Amino acid sequence: MKHLAIIILTLSATFCFAQEKEQLIALKKANNYVYQGNSLVKEDDFVSAEMAYRKAISEQPTGVAGIYNLGNSYYKKGNFDEALYRHQQAAENAESKAEKHKAYHNIGNILMKNKKCKEAVEIYKNALRNNPTDNETRYNLALAKACAEQQKDQQDQNKDDKDKDKKDEENKENEDKKDKEGDNKDDKKDEGEKDKKEGDDKKDDEGKPKDEKEDKGKGDDNKKNKQQKPKPQPGQLSPQQIKSLLEAMNNQEKKVQEKMNAEKQKGIKIKTEKDW
């Protein structure tokens, strides 16, 4: 039993030693790749440098050096989005304050490049919390504060200009509406005056409708004609009576003539008499 325990301890120590040895070898390889990448960056060979840094990250995935330096190469190349992503990774994986300070400082610089001054202020503060003595970070913080204040003033000015433009537009719409209403009133006024003029044209000097007066005049004339039509006077015959009398006379004469003709045929002379 004692020998078994010794064997187990020996194997455990051997395994730990082998593991530590592998980690040391991986760390050494990673550092070599980082060193190689840094040299390539100085030669502006960013493609080869990126490959070297990625090999370093492959050897030591949680290592900060490979991630941090890869982020720096992206920053120098002008690829700020990738640079930001890698430095955020470095800040998360960093174990020492020095590593955190460097990662936050670079993140602040990237945000300033992207004109995100307000966000940069908070990041620089995080960098100073990990290294309060860094004057460069402090200087960048002051610049970020001034930039953020300027952006705020510009935003306020833009908002005021926008509100002013909106107000001017509303005033113009109101003025156009008033002008339109005024034009409608003038049109209605003109129509009213026209109707009034037409109405006046239909009236005489006394203010009475001409048509009514004309109709009334015609009525008066008809009435006058009716009044002027002669009426039969007492003791005189009307035209109808005269006509009837003439017809009666003609009939009577016809009868008398017929009678006379009959008498002539008989040879007897008679006297003609009038009925009236």
Rank of each mutant, 00 (worst) to 15 (best):
I8Y: 13
T10G: 10
S12D: 11
S12T: 15
L24M: 11
K28N: 15
A30T: 10
Y33H: 12
Y35R: 06
Q36C: 06
V47E: 08
E59Y: 00
G71E: 01
G71F: 00
N72P: 01
K76W: 00
G78E: 00
N79E: 15
Y85K: 10
H87C: 01
A94T: 02
S96Q: 08
A103T: 08
I107C: 07
I110Q: 01
N114P: 01
K115S: 08
A120F: 03
V121I: 10
V121R: 00
I123Q: 05
I123N: 03
A127N: 05
D134C: 04
R138V: 06
Y139N: 12
A142S: 11
A144G: 10
A146F: 00
A146M: 09
E149P: 06
Q154Y: 10
D156F: 04
N158V: 05
K159A: 14
K164V: 13
E169P: 03
E170V: 03
K172S: 12
D176N: 15
K177Y: 04
D179Y: 09
E181Q: 08
D183I: 14
K189A: 10
K189N: 11
D190Y: 11
E191C: 04
G192C: 05
G192E: 13
K194N: 12
K196G: 05
D201K: 13
K202L: 08
D204P: 02
D204W: 01
K208E: 07
E214T: 12
D215C: 03
N225A: 14
N225T: 15
Q228G: 13
K229D: 12
S238F: 02
Q241L: 01
A248T: 07
N251A: 13
Q252F: 15
K254Q: 15
V256D: 12
N261Y: 00
A262M: 04
E263Y: 02
K264N: 09
G267R: 02
K271T: 08
T272I: 09
T272N: 05
E273K: 02
